[in-house]
Simulated assay, not measured.
Amino acid sequence: MINILKQLFKSEPKPDYSELLKNGGIIVDVRTKNEYAAGHIKGSKNIPLNSLNHNLAKLKKKDQSIITCCASGMRSGSAKSILKNLGYTNVHNGGGWRNLERKIS
């Protein structure tokens, strides 16, 4: 049981988000349009989580670095899982957008 829990909650090394962006990566903000309008990371794409499956054309390459973000990291974690299950190979949960913004500045 403990091994299963360790596998479920194992942490991956945090990538250098700035480096991913310099090399053609994108930020996908999965908050609602109203949340996004109230503040967001410059240059990020707003694709709300509930419409992610219908907007995959906005994510052109399945091997492109994609950093998901939201308000706290929960929805962006879900978005990462969805994208990984759809064959996107280089997806990272950036967590809350304000914290991510500090990391890439």
Rank of each mutant, 00 (worst) to 15 (best):
G94S: 07
L5S: 13
Y36Q: 00
N55C: 09
L8Y: 07
E35L: 08
M1H: 14
L8V: 10
S11W: 02
W97S: 02
T32D: 12
I27N: 07
L8E: 09
K33D: 05
S18G: 15
N23I: 10
G94K: 03
S44E: 04
N55E: 10
C70H: 03
L20F: 06
M1T: 14
H92N: 14
N3G: 10
A37V: 00
S72W: 00
P48T: 02
S81L: 15
N46P: 08
D16E: 09
N99T: 14
L8D: 04
F9G: 03
I104T: 06
I67Q: 01
K60F: 02
L83I: 06
S51K: 12
S78W: 00
A71Q: 11
S44K: 07
E12V: 09
S65M: 04
A79C: 10
I66P: 00
E19I: 09
C70R: 03
L21E: 02
S65H: 14
N93Y: 06
S81P: 00
H40W: 01
R75D: 01
R98F: 04
K14A: 11
V28T: 04
S81D: 14
Y88C: 03
K60L: 06
I66S: 02
L56Q: 05
N46S: 08
L20N: 03
I82N: 13
E101K: 13
H40Y: 09
M1Y: 12
L52E: 01
V28F: 06
G95A: 10
L59G: 07
G43Y: 06
E35W: 06
M1D: 13
S65D: 09
T89F: 09
K84Y: 05
I4M: 10
K103S: 15
G77S: 13
N90E: 05
L56A: 08
G96H: 11
F9P: 01
C70A: 10
N90Q: 11
I66D: 02
N85Y: 02
A57W: 07
L8G: 04
L52K: 01
K62F: 03
L5E: 14
K60C: 00
Y17A: 05
L86F: 12
S78Q: 14
L100V: 03
C70F: 10
K6R: 15
R98W: 00
I4V: 12
N46V: 02
C69Q: 07
N53H: 13
K22L: 14
S51L: 10
S78P: 00
I104D: 07
I82P: 06
N85E: 13
L100K: 02
L21F: 05
N23R: 15
N46K: 04
Y17R: 06
S65F: 08
K14E: 15
E19G: 02
K84A: 13
N93Q: 07
K60A: 12
S18R: 15
I67L: 09
S11E: 15
L59I: 08
K58I: 01
P15F: 04
I104C: 08
D16G: 03
L86W: 11
Q7F: 11
K45R: 13
I4Y: 12
S78T: 13
I41E: 05
I47C: 05
